[in-house]
Design a binder for these strands. Structure first.
Length: 403
RNA sequence: GCCCCCAUCGUCUAGUGGCCGAGGACGCCGCCCUUUCAAGGCGGUAACGGGGAUUCGAACUCCCCUGGGGGCACCA
C-alpha cells in the first residue's frame, strides 16, 4: 500500500506551531515511507476563511521546508460533492432533516446540561414525518441535515499511537452535517475527502480524537468498508500547561521566523516535540529526521513548548550552517536596520562573531549594532567594552577578526 | 456535568519484567579555558504521582485513586 497523507489546515489565521507540528509529522511520515503528502484547505466555513491566510499558510510550509505533491485541494471548490453525499445519506436514512431554531437549540442545550448530559442533541427531529417536514419548511424554519448516530453499542478504531480507542455511542448524539445556509460541515467534508482522496493514514492532533468515531460512521454510511489508519499526536502546551494561545507570546510560525529562528532549527525542534529517535541524537538535519522517523515512536503525553531549548537548537544551527548561508539570511535584517549603505565587510564580520556567540539571528543583528554604529552597542551590557571603544570601524573590524 | 486521552528530573525525552541504586538533552549551579561575553571542556543539582494486585523480581502488566489535558457547536 502506498502511503497517502494530507495536512488539512483551516485558513482562519496564521499557521501556529501546533498545526505546523502536525504538518511536519505528516510530511515526515510520507517522505520516510516514500508516500504522497497532500495539502487540503478546509475552508467550508466561509465566515472564518480569509484568502490571505491561505497564501500565508503555503508560504510558511514552504519556509519550513515542507513541500507537497499535488495541487492543493480547496474544500470550498467541492461543496457540491459534499452536498451530493449528504443527499445520499438522506436517501438511505443515515441522515435526516431538522428544522430547529437557534432559540430552541439553546433551550435544549441548557436543559440537557442541567440533566447532566452533554449539550448535544436530543433527537427531536429524528422521527418527523414527510408531512411534518414539509410543513416546517413551509413555515420558513431553518433546515439543517443531521447524521443519525447509533443509540448504543461501542465504536472502536485503531490508533497507531494510542491503540484501541473505544467510546459508547450513547454518549454521541446526532450532529449537523449541513448548515441551514446549505453549506457542509467539517465532519461531512472531512469524511468524503479522506475517502475520495484515498487517504491511507490520518495524522492529526489529539484534540480531534473524539471526532474520529463520527467521521468513521459517515464513511460507513457512505458505503465504504475501508478505514484509514489513525495516529493522534499529543498536544503542544504552553508553560502553564494550557493550550497554546496568542496571549502568551509567539505561537505562529511566522513569529519565530521574524524573531530570527532558522527554518532548520524550528523543523528540528518541532520534530523532537512528541517524537524521539531510537538513539541520543538531537541536532539533526531534515534528511536525518526523515530517515529516522516513525509513527510508532510518537510519544503519548502532551508536551510543553520550551523556548529555551528552541534557542539552543537555533544556536546550534547558526553555528553549524555555512558562513555564507548565514550572511545571506542575515542580510535582510541588516538591510532593514542599517539601510542601503550596508557594508558587506562589516556584515561578514558581524556574522563571524554571531556564529560564535549568538543563539538567534536577532541576537546576531544586535552584535552588528556596535559594529555599524560604533559606539551604540547593545551587546549584553559591558561585553566587549574594550573592542567597542575603538573608534575607527576598520580598527573595530580588525580587533574583532583578530580577537 | 458526561465522554475520551495521558502520567519518568523544572522542561523535552530514553526505558516495553531482571542490563535502572533510572540514561541523554535543555535549563540551572560550580570549576576550567578566556583581558571580558559567548562558544567549548569537566563536574553537580534534579524524576519513575499515591495505593493495591500479579510475579522469584516491577519505571515497565492489571485495578483503584489523584493529577493534567482534550472533547461534548449550524468551528475545524
Amino acid at each position: 500500500m502506498t502511503v497517502r497523507v494530507r495536512f488539512s489546515p483551516a485558513p482562519s489565521g496564521e499557521l501556529h506551531v501546533g498545526s505546523a507540528r502536525t504538518a511536519l509529522f505528516n510530511w515526515l511520515f510520507a517522505r520516510h515511507e516514500g508516500g504522497t503528502f497532500l495539502v487540503r484547505i478546509e475552508d467550508t466555513d466561509v465566515s472564518r476563511t480569509r484568502e490571505e491566510w491561505v497564501d500565508a499558510i503555503g508560504d510558511t510550509l514552504r519556509w519550513l521546508g515542507l513541500d507537497w505533491d499535488e495541487t492543493p485541494w480547496r474544500q470550498s471548490e467541492r461543496i457540491d460533492v459534499y452536498l451530493a453525499a449528504a443527499d445520499r445519506l438522506l436517501a438511505s436514512g443515515a441522515a435526516y432533516e431538522c428544522f430547529d431554531t437557534p432559540e430552541e437549540l439553546d433551550e435544549m442545550h441548557a436543559a440537557r446540561k442541567a440533566a447532566g448530559l452533554a449539550p448535544g442533541y436530543d433527537g427531536r427531529g429524528r422521527d418527523l414525518s414527510a408531512d411534518d417536514r414539509a410543513r416546517l419548511a413551509a413555515e420558513g424554519r431553518p433546515r439543517t441535515v443531521r447524521f443519525r448516530t447509533p443509540d448504543s453499542g461501542p465504536s472502536t478504531f485503531t490508533d497507531v499511537v494510542r491503540g484501541e480507542v473505544t467510546v459508547e455511542w450513547s454518549t454521541i448524539s446526532d450532529f449537523v452535517i449541513v448548515r441551514s445556509d446549505g453549506s457542509p460541515l467539517f465532519f461531512l467534508a472531512n469524511a468524503v475527502d479522506d475517502l475520495e482522496m484515498g487517504i491511507t493514514h490520518v495524522v492529526r492532533g489529539e484534540d480531534l480524537i473524539d471526532t474520529t468515531h463520527r467521521v468513521l460512521a459517515i464513511r460507513r454510511a457512505l458505503g465504504s468498508d475501508q478505514v484509514p489508519l489513525y495516529a493522534h499526536l499529543p498536544l503542544i502546551l504552553q508553560a502553564d500547561r494550557a493550550k497554546l494561545s496568542k496571549r502568551h507570546g509567539a505561537v505562529a510560525v511566522e513569529d519565530f521566523r521574524a524573531r530570527g529562528v532558522l527554518s532548520e532549527a524550528l523543523f528540528n525542534y518541532l520534530a523532537l516535540l512528541g517524537w524521539a529517535p531510537d538513539d541520543d541524537r538531537e541536532v539533526m538535519d531534515r534528511a536525518e529526521i526523515v530517515d529516522a522517523f516513525s509513527l510508532t515512536r510518537v510519544t503519548h503525553s502532551a508536551a510543553i513548548f520550551d523556548d529555551k531549548k528552541l534557542e539552543w537548537i537555533n544556536g546550534e544551527w547558526i553555528r553549524r550552517l555555512a558562513h555564507d548561508v548565514i550572511v545571506d539570511r542575515i542580510r535582510p535584517f541588516a538591510h532593514d536596520r542599517y539601510g542601503v549603505g550596508l557594508d558587506e565587510t562589516l556584515l561578514d564580520a558581524a556574522v563571524t562573531i554571531g556564529q560564535e556567540r549568538a543563539s538567534t539571528l536577532v541576537a546576531l543583528a544586535d552584535q552588528m549594532d556596535f559594529l555599524f554604529a560604533g559606539d551604540g552597542f547593545t551587546v549584553a551590557d559591558t561585553v566587549w567594552a574594550d573592542v567597542a571603544t575603538v573608534e575607527q570601524p576598520a580598527a573595530v573590524l580588525d580587533a574583532v577578526i583578530t580577537h
